[in-house]
Design a binder for these strands. Structure first.
Lengths: 259, 259
DNA sequence: CGGGACTTTGAGCAAATTCAACCATTGTGG
DNA sequence: CCACAATGGTTGAATTTGCTCAAAGTCCCG
């Protein structure tokens, strides 16, 4: 258990030799992509590159929200806890994603590295100053927030109204879509998170996650070479199981049904 | 069923005699509060005041997101549907709240009037132009989005990990806190939504909502003079049942527990 | 080779849902 | 003004989904 690893320390490397943002591979996918190369210097000036080990805590719910982050490599789980230890993972974050979007004084959730992690860290105060200067950046952040809000609503639908099978199917498909969006192949999916993480993300017990995976495997829908990888064999069926909420915008007729 | 009432029509009143925003009672509580009285004219110029009847649809998930709204009177439910009609209510919105925060092309959810409703309607394009002009407004919107994101995460915790009793207790307390924040009394709570709405908001069957209310009543925690009103008799116990996730920031020790 | 963490599988159980009546309130037409 | 339909809410019984508890299997690392 590595929760006593408090927020990470600056990287050992010399930080500002050249502008690290210029060379950053994930820039285009992330908020930083809103800025012109010339403007990037201003961003680079307030950036500290840091790392974290698997299991290490980036910040804890309730901590003063002094920093915002961009993940430049690795995966993060965000979560909230109940006093008795029950945990809800509110999201997984991967390379290129923004972490810590909170314009309030304290983090609303905790964040932990799932894998070895590289991060860019921005002091919140300084970043807010930069927002005043570059409206483009602020607009981008607003769109990011808007995006996350939509994702959160999808997740509410999943948590509140989908069955275990539907939850797992939706989860696999959304990981697949995320991969495709990043130009990776969509059929072989890496699962950097544990069964427990998946359960706490989908509102299921760890055993239910495992059983459901097994069921999908027996159905021939998914194949696992090992627990940390899933290969989608029958996307059609998976989409069918997931409930296909995605098609809603097209059908729209269902909006007239009530239970 | 009144779902064929499509987006509402302009109010009968002469719209621009004086600046209606100047006199607006909910301004301070809402995004409009970000602007100086002088700047309000610009906002007023793109505003249309409209109304809607109970049950009337404001917009449907997937519709082009042409307008944003501020609720100036009444209550709204936002929801998403699965193709088979299962519904998840993603939030209730009341007087002073912003509706339709979506900087993308289509609404991510549907919105329906729960009560007789007054709204200010802003064309999205024009409002976005105004954002360029008034960074204050954009910052306010970003804070609003940030806020909603935090609320969405709380709701995920509730949906994924709380029991029926905890859900109902949390729901009552959050309605109470909202009322207090608005300067109303916190013990007598109006429930403008039906049991079905509450169930679809909390991820419960309608019968479970009803049974849990009855249980609370028998426990002497809550009293209902009628189904649309709840009076909190024993706030302590209610908070205890709710799981008190709110205190997390103080205790923090629980962050080290795992299941 | 052995310990530990994670995963899978099985059996029994419990919380919440479903199905089915019944009750209460409101509005309508005779 | 009353009867009664309609809507929404409550209550009960049976069922089910997913959880808990328990044990065994797998993989990784030292």
């Amino acid at each position: 258990m590595s929760h006593d690893n408090r927020p990470s320390r600056p990287l050992e490397l010399a930080p500002q030799i050249a502008n690290p943002c210029q060379a950053c591979a994930v820039r285009v996918h992330s908020v930083c992509g809103a800025l012109e190369p010339a403007e990037l210097n201003r961003l680079a000036a307030i950036t500290t590159q840091t790392e974290a080990e698997p299991g290490e805590t980036i910040f804890i719910e309730g901590d003063p929200a002094d920093h915002l982050f961009v993940v430049t490599g690795g995966g993060v789980r965000m979560y909230k806890l109940l006093p008795d230890g029950r945990r809800q993972i509110t999201g997984f974050i991967f390379t290129g994603d923004f972490l810590g979007l909170a314009l309030y004084d304290n983090y609303a959730y905790s964040a932990e590295a799932m894998t070895k992690l590289q991060l860019c860290r921005f002091p919140r105060r300084k970043l807010e100053k930069l927002l005043d200067e570059f409206p483009k950046l602020e607009r981008r952040l607003l769109k990011t927030a808007s995006n996350e809000l939509a994702a959160a609503q999808d997740q509410m639908l999943l948590l509140g109204r989908k069955t275990a099978r539907e939850k797992i199917a939706t989860f696999l498909l959304s990981l697949s879509e995320r991969a495709i969006r990043r130009g990776e192949r969509g059929d072989v999916i890496a699962l950097p998170m544990s069964r427990g993480d998946i359960g706490d993300y989908l509102g299921l017990a760890i055993e239910t996650v495992s059983r459901t995976f097994t069921r999908f495997k027996k159905l021939g829908v998914v194949y696992h070479s090992n627990p940390r990888e899933a290969k989608i064999l029958d996307r059609e069926t998976l989409q069918h199981i997931a409930g296909m909420a995605e098609d809603m915008s097209l059908t729209a007729t269902a909006a007239f049904r009530r239970r």
